[in-house]
Each structure stands twice: as structure tokens, then as C-alpha cells.
């Protein structure tokens, strides 16, 4: 997915304005403007300038607002969403299911989506889960979530 520079520029300008609006509520240091709001304000102003430059470049280029990159395919997009979704699933499920189950499930599903052979996927997902668990939980003592099942 490639956006026209003007679209990016417009988004940046809106963001910059929002920042300036937001930081107006910050306290100042004894009547001077040099407080917590100074840096965000300067950055936001620069962002607005950079955004305007992008808008100009985008209008000049006469490209459509959104263009599909040549290497972009529908199945690629699905895989991307699945990969991101797997991380979200881990965030919400790992406390309840535990690291071992969640990690295995995430890797196995992704491997299948990337068209790995199922038997191989089971073996590698299980092996990698156990390896990561041993290294991080047993060696480095990271408290990976225990959940339903652990060793």
C-alpha cells in the first residue's frame, strides 16, 4: 500500500495541529514559554512545514491517492493481518492459556498460513516453543506466563 505524498502530508499537518492544540494545556515555567510544551510545539511546527512540502510534492506527482505496490497481493495482506493478529492474540490469551500453549498455537497457525507442511510445522513449532521456554524461562528467569500448563 503506497499513499500519495499529499495524503501523508495532510495526515502529518493534522497531527501537528493536534499536538499544538494539546500542549497548550501544559504548565509553563514561571510565565516563560520554555516549559514542557516547548519541544513538542517546535517539533509540531516543523512537522507542519514538512507536511506542507509533502502535500506540494504529492499534488505535483499526480499519482492516485492510494496505489497498490506491485509486490502487494491479497494473500500477502491476509498473511500480514494474520501475523499481526497472532501477536494481539498472544497479548490477550497468554495469561490465561500460558506461554507454552499460546506460543505453539501462534507459530503453528502462521506456519500453516505460510504453507508449511503440517507435520513439519507441528514439530518445528513445538521444538521452538520448548527452546524459547528453556532459554528465557529456565536460563534467563523471565517469568513467562504459566497459564493452564507448564513445566
Amino acid at each position: 500500500m503506497r499513499f500519495n505524498d499529499a495524503v501523508i502530508g495532510a495526515a502529518v499537518v493534522v497531527f501537528g495541529l493536534a499536538v499544538i492544540f494539546h500542549v497548550r494545556t501544559y504548565p509553563d515555567m514561571g510565565g516563560r514559554m520554555m516549559g514542557p510544551a516547548l519541544f513538542p510545539t517546535v517539533l509540531a511546527l516543523l512537522m507542519i512545514v514538512a507536511g506542507l512540502v509533502q502535500i506540494r510534492a504529492g499534488i505535483k506527482s499526480k499519482e492516485p491517492p492510494v496505489r497498490r505496490l506491485p509486490e502487494f497481493t491479497l494473500s500477502g495482506a491476509v498473511k500480514f493481518l494474520l501475523a499481526a493478529g497472532c501477536v494481539v492474540f498472544y497479548i490477550y490469551a497468554s495469561d490465561y492459556l500460558g506461554f507454552l500453549i499460546t506460543s505453539f498455537a501462534v507459530m503453528f497457525v502462521l506456519m500453516l498460513a505460510l504453507r508449511a507442511r503440517p507435520l513439519l510445522a507441528v514439530l518445528v513449532a513445538a521444538g521452538a516453543t520448548v527452546c524459547v521456554y528453556l532459554v528465557f524461562n529456565k536460563m534467563l528467569l523471565v517469568p513467562l506466563p504459566i497459564g493452564l500448563f507448564s513445566f
Binding site: 501462534v106 508449511a116 513439519l120 517469568p143
Partner: peptide, 24 residues
Amino acid sequence: PRNLLYPVILMFCVVGAFAINNSL
């Protein structure tokens, strides 16, 4: 095979990000 490697790396990213502060 990449299709086995990428999921493992993604899991490594998850655990690595978690391990610094033990925070989801």
C-alpha cells in the same frame, strides 16, 4: 525454509519485547 523461520522469529520478537520489563 522461510515459512518455518519467520513464525519462529516473530515469536522471538514477542518474547524479547516481553522479557525486558516482563510486561505485555
